[in-house]
């Protein structure tokens, strides 16, 4: 399972000369005289350097700055989109999930099923309209408008339906008696949500947050089509761009893959339990 990842890691630490050997070598560990040994291995950070392009900058915190576009622009952008959409999804799904879990109102079932059905509509088929909206919004010249806002809104719109379901099913597991006790003590419903339900449903809300974060981090096509300025583009666009630039520099591509995938992989490894629970829960129910 992990072989392709391992091979990519390996490639990312090779020198350009070793990447371009015919036939390809798995480990660059042979001496010029043909003997093979671990002491001859040549692993370098050249690939990573060429992604990051660190330049000395005396004023900054670490003593150098990363000037490669990937890490000076694209990855911070992606982080911004992923974090702000996840935070918004967290809040909106929390509110909506509470309404669905605790109140019985007219049209509740219909709305729930409609929201579930929406999870099946892919971003792709809505992109024509969203593209047109993005163009119109740019033309409208609204003061203070930034295409990044629209991008976050789009991501929220696509991550929200599933998150509402995950959060609702977690809220359902919390006994209502706890809130009723709070009501008797004079708590309003919103206060009960904040003080009782949210603390108890933290795993569910975290799952909604993390799933949204990872999905937005990995999203490509919407960012590719809806954003026009280079300064606001995403890391996945950067990866796509790398592909067209570095036709020969495979070690650079491999290093970029490793660097861009690493944050979510590490996040996943630390929070795996939340992921497993939420995904099986959500998927089995719909």
């Amino acid at each position: 399972m992990l072989l392709p990842i391992a091979l990519t890691l390996l490639t990312s630490f090779k020198r350009e000369a070793d990447v371009l050997r015919k036939p390809p070598v798995l480990l660059p560990c042979d001496a010029p005289d043909g003997s093979w040994g671990i002491q001859h291995c040549r692993f370098v950070l050249e690939g990573y350097e060429r992604v990051l392009i660190p330049k000395p900058a005396p004023g900054s915190l670490l003593g150098f700055e990363l000037t490669g576009r990937m890490f000076s622009t694209y990855v911070p952008n992606t982080f911004l989109y992923a974090f702000s959409s996840a935070a918004l999804v967290f809040i909106l799904a929390g509110l909506a999930g509470y309404a669905f879990s605790r109140y019985r109102f007219r049209g509740r079932r219909l709305l729930l099923v409609a929201i579930l059905a929406i999870t099946g509509i892919p971003l792709l088929t809505n992109l024509l309209a969203l593209y047109q909206m993005a163009v119109d919004l740019r033309k409208a010249n609204i003061p203070g408008y930034d295409e990044r806002m629209f991008m976050v809104l789009v991501y929220v719109g696509f991550q929200l339906p599933f998150a509402v379901w995950v959060v609702k099913s977690f809220f359902d597991t919390i006994p209502r008696e706890l809130e009723e006790a709070a009501f008797i003590d004079g708590c309003t419903p919103l206060c009960a949500l904040r003080r009782i339900v949210v603390p108890l449903a933290t795993p569910g809300l975290m799952a909604a947050f993390l799933l949204c974060f990872v999905n937005v981090w990995n999203e490509f096509i919407a960012g590719f089509l809806l954003l026009t300025r280079r300064e606001v583009r995403t890391a996945m666009f950067g990866m796509y761009d790398f592909l067209s630039q570095n036709i020969i520099n495979y070690q650079v591509i491999a290093a970029a893959c490793v660097l861009v995938a690493a944050p979510v992989v590490i996040l996943f490894l630390f929070t795996r339990r939340v992921f497993f629970e939420a995904m099986t829960e959500g998927a089995v129910k719909g």
Partner: peptide, 12 residues
């Protein structure tokens, strides 16, 4: 570890 491919972007 076995589940890592799941969180890697399709582009990557």
């Amino acid at each position: 570890l076995l589940f890592i491919p799941w969180v890697i972007a399709d582009i990557i």
